[in-house]
Write a protein that binds this DNA or RNA. Sequence first.
DNA 1: GCCGTTTTCGGCCCGACTGTTTTCAGTCG
Length: 586
Amino acid sequence: MTKNEIADVLSEIGVLLELSGENPFKIRAYQSGARALAAMEEAELGRLITAGELATIKGFGDALVQKITELHTTGRLVFFEKLKASIEPGLAEMLQIPGLGPKKIRALHSKLGIASIAALGQACAEGKVAELEGFGEKTQEKIVEGIRNREAYGRRHLWWDAAEIAGPIVAGLRALPQVRRAESAGSLRRGMETVGDLDFIVAADDVAPVVEWFVAQPGVKEVTAQGETKASVRFESGLQADLRIVPAGQFVFALHHFTGSKDHNVQLRQRALAAGLSLSEWGLVPAEGEGTAKEKAEQGKSLVAGSERELFAALKLSFIPPELREGLGEIEAAEGDELPRLVELADLRGAFHNHTTASDGRNTLAEMTAAAEALGWEYFGIADHSKASFQAKGLSEERLLQQIGEVHALNASQRFTTHVFTGTECDILTDGRLDFDDELLAKLDYVVVSVHNAFTQDEATMTARIIRAIEHPLTSMLGHLTGRLLLRREGYQVDVTKVIDAAIANNVVIELNANPWRLDLDWRHWRKAAERGLLTSINPDAHETAGLEDVRAGVNVARKGWLTREHVLNTRPLAEVKMWLADRRR
DNA sequence: GCCGTTTTCGGCCCGACTGTTTTCAGTCG
């Protein structure tokens, strides 16, 4: 069983244990075990198991080591199968209803025999739920509402879509006269590929006008809560947003708290406790003495911090960028001042893998180049589809030769300061051969190879297919490694670690496809891959001029993957990129 | 279930909100 499959089993065990009323700390152990596993590399897991060193990983004790090993070697886990058989399958999906947790679900099941969302809806309609002890009319109404909204609003949203809504709101909040500081927090600020809801943290002198402004924003469909310090709204798209207003002295602590992640916060609070301090969204106060952290903060016992940098410094840590706050070793690295200097949008000097009207793009070569120049890029790579991608108007040999001529003419004309590279997004055929012959590929500056068909091949076939393409001497880059579309389609079955190994061995770049729907390869792979020597390129895969901006989303993912400028080919100046590409052609 | 420069047992982050209660349990982030 693969590492991700094992991680899924561990988190499912966590859910099942919750429903069976287990010790919450035991549940947490399975959940954190699942996350630790997800952050690991496939090959590393195999190595640790073979060497009997799995227990050296933090969070893996005897029980988890035994269970992970059993899953990895046999593909089964008797404990899991028995646990699963002991719990009604419909109970887990009931957890998706807001307001329903394990305790309430168990009460519904034991007292009313409810074991599915459908049965729950029926019981509500008959008024049975409201009569239960610990429940009431309001709870029942909330459940009915939750069931109704589940389909429409239950899903997550692309980071890009969420950022487009959040940006104007933060700007608008900052422009209000009552507002001293305003930021968005949550998974949006951490640069997660998808976002559940928006969080805005505001320091303001006068609350009411700010709340009134917020709930009146365009696109707000419904105001779900409106109080003294907090308001919640739902937008037309189903996206929810929370606004929290705090006194100026608390702003930094609230911002940090609501940025998360949960794992990061837990670890940082433990670190504070070890230093005799207690951290919360209210402040950083001495742990000893009577009273809650909130009370101590209000008595002026909290550290005064004007920035998150000062908050981290008080805990003897260097500043941890929000993108790294996932509880995956960033605190340990910050302790030794060993955090990487993450790549930034301004580091990019160009981009490869862009389409034009020659294949399925919506802007011409000149329009795309002008847009690249407007971004200040030194170079710009064209990579239109190859002939096998018939549905995308893939170029024939003749049309590609013609395009090469056009690019050379454009460069010679000096119409743009941006240098244009000739390239192709060449299909990897089902057996791993490339869609153009070597003579033609050799005429190009670079070659991106991608899978666009036969997605359902089994893992061994797909992995061998992609590796064969990587081993082709004229291949420069691998496009969208897994082919996933976020919130729509899983990637194809492929052994990512083996593909990464092949790319390193053959000096081939694996692109970080920056299209907001793709963000492929996932950020969880990059840190280890880069440590092993993988080079990437943040590629917009733009099909129109506006698509070039997608590199912003790609930079987020690179930062979440701990990547520095040195790991990213398209941060290099033109002369160095020319040399790198030419070296690939020897 | 995990973990330990006091600990191999007894802890495990912290607080707000809601609805149900009449002092609090459950849920959420």
